[in-house]
Computed example of a mutant assay.
Amino acid sequence: MSPETTAQALPYPRLAAALAALLQDPQVQVPPRLVQPLPGGGSLFVMPAHDAQLAITKLITFVPDNAARGLPAIQGDIVVFDAVDGRRIGLLDGPTVTARRTAAVSLLAAQRLAPRTDGPLLIVGAGVQGRSHVDALADGLGLSEVLVASRSAASADALVQHARDRGLTATRVDDPDAALADCPLVVSCTPAQAVCLRGRPRDDAFVAAVGAFTPRMVEWAPEVCRDLARRGTLVVDTRDADLEAGDLLQAGIDVAALPTLADVVAGRVRRPAAGPVFFKSCGWAGWDLAAARCAQAG
């Protein structure tokens, strides 16, 4: 499928529901992903998964500095097979699936855990993930207001215009730490090459920390993560985060002791009565399998 056709096959509310269903399917198998460093500083990701009907392999490259080349940071495809007879039955655009399923994971977590879902929403990072999160949370939560922060004023302004085109009230902010005081919904989706957030989220905040997906990457200052652990609830997307959640690992937090989104969907962890929620998303091939299931169900 082209990027446009792939996007049309993955509406955010239906994709979030597919993610929840996958987490309750005992036949889903997701082996560890292979990450192969590339000579130019990027990485090749090989991510297989299957259930009783479908098998997928995601093959993508991630090159953080590709913007300087005029290329997207993520490139590649997801190959979909019939798990019974082995036929190839689909090909999805990898960057489109990555953007949409990642934002849908944040949407699912917010639907189940956010103390407040009415916004305003603060987006920190105005790239592909910033745009997909604006769309996902607007479609799934009914937001009306978005604040956008980015190192690039041009990127921030472009995302602000996109939000306005959707009918949202949208504003660029230059100090995301200060904007935290006004926003019960926060998504950080930066390149995660250095700490960019040192402010204290509100007591009723839901934070989806998306950018850092290796132990060395980081968006949130360690002292902020430790503060959130003391006064709020920390949840990770999957157990893969035990070795990948850079923000939490660099804060010295025992990630393996934290609940996962599967615990939330199963009802073992519920929306907290008080305190902020910090949801750490690192990625998982199971999310891509859920996207393939959603697209095939069409």
Rank of each mutant, 00 (worst) to 15 (best):
V84F: 00
G167K: 13
T6M: 03
L168R: 08
A178W: 08
D177R: 14
A114E: 05
L19N: 06
V269F: 08
A295R: 01
L15Y: 06
D177K: 15
P48N: 09
G90Y: 01
R131S: 11
P31L: 01
V187S: 10
I89W: 02
A170F: 11
A109Q: 03
E219G: 07
L113M: 07
V195H: 09
R33M: 02
A114H: 02
T190Y: 07
L261M: 14
G90W: 00
A103R: 03
T61M: 06
L147K: 12
F213P: 02
A103T: 06
L197A: 10
V84A: 04
G267A: 12
P120I: 14
R230G: 02
A7K: 02
T57S: 05
P13C: 07
A241N: 11
C183Y: 07
A136L: 02
A290I: 05
R268L: 09
A154V: 15
D242C: 12
A163S: 12
D177E: 10
T57I: 06
D263A: 12
D65Q: 12
L141K: 01
A192P: 03
F279V: 12
A251D: 02
Q161D: 15
A103I: 10
A154W: 03
D288H: 11
A251E: 03
V236M: 07
T171Y: 14
V46N: 06
L197N: 12
D51K: 00
R100C: 07
